[in-house]
């Protein structure tokens, strides 16, 4: 399961970085979203991947990570999701405002022939 998760995170991060490096704001926003998913799954997996192990201590079961899930990464990932969600919303608003103000969705504000005409 670890290998599967690692490949999943790698694909997410790779796709995210590729989209991030593209020249149009929409691609950049998507790339950042994928990258933040990769980060969130990374945090999540740092609590060790376990099946059917509740984070509540039970009598008679030694309180080690072998018997229980670690609840802290879940709390961390929740915070991270909320923050990255809000930031993505903000970035979308800025990207839309910039598109409206400059007539281009190019990150360096160069006139983008194909897209600007399609959208406009």
């Amino acid at each position: 399961m670890e290998a599967l998760l690692a490949i999943f995170v790698g694909v997410l991060a790779g796709t995210g970085v590729y989209l991030l490096l593209r020249a149009h704001t929409f691609d950049v926003v998507l790339g950042l979203t994928l990258l933040s998913y990769a980060a969130n799954v990374t945090i999540f997996s740092m609590g060790r991947i376990a099946v059917a192990k509740p984070p509540i201590i039970q009598p008679g079961l030694a309180p080690t990570l072998a018997n229980y899930a670690d609840p802290l990464p879940h709390a961390l990932v929740l915070t991270a999701i909320v923050i990255s969600f809000a930031m993505t919303a903000l970035l979308l608003v800025i990207a839309l405002a910039a598109r409206a103000a400059t007539g281009s969705d190019h990150v360096d504000d160069e006139p983008s022939r194909g897209r600007a005409q399609d959208a406009g």
Binding site: L20, L32, L35, S36, A38, S84, M87, L91
Partner: peptide, 8 residues
């Protein structure tokens, strides 16, 4: 935002 993701 990219830096924040790396921070995480």
């Amino acid at each position: 935002l990219t830096a924040s993701t790396l921070f995480l």
